[in-house]
Design a protein around this nucleic acid. Sequence first.
DNA 1: ATTGAATATTAATTCAAG
DNA 2: CTTGAATTAATATTCAAT
Lengths: 65, 65
Amino acid sequence: MKNRRHDLIKKIIEEDVIETQEALAEALRARHVRVTQATISRDIKELFLIKVPAGGGRRSEERFS
Amino acid sequence: MKNRRHDLIKKIIEEDVIETQEALAEALRARHVRVTQATISRDIKELFLIKVPAGGGRRSEERFS
DNA sequence: ATTGAATATTAATTCAAG
DNA sequence: CTTGAATTAATATTCAAT
């Protein structure tokens, strides 16, 4: 279900630093939600998530707009 | 020079809706600043620009973070 | 309406080079 | 240190299919 996945995404991105949609898909799969990058792309748009430079040395992470 | 280009970029994105880095490069070239997508990519990072959903029907535009 | 696989498009990076 | 050309990587979209 989409809403469960959306909720999980919000949780994941505040817990971990996620750098790519593929990585987010993997994180979801690790939590037994089967999903592909294509769907993540759509989810990110629906949730108004944007990629922002991460605080630390790393390159970027997903964050709320 | 980089600073002139950066200033110009800021101006362009508040005037026009720019959807891709290539389009931004073209807008700059139209203003006689010769630049490629690779450089725009770096500029965007340095200026902390992020892509946000456009207000209207269009898909996206560049905006300040 | 939601999704995945495949594809197309866009963006970031590498690797010289100035 | 800045850049472009070429390449790689990431993301968006198309095209079924459910």
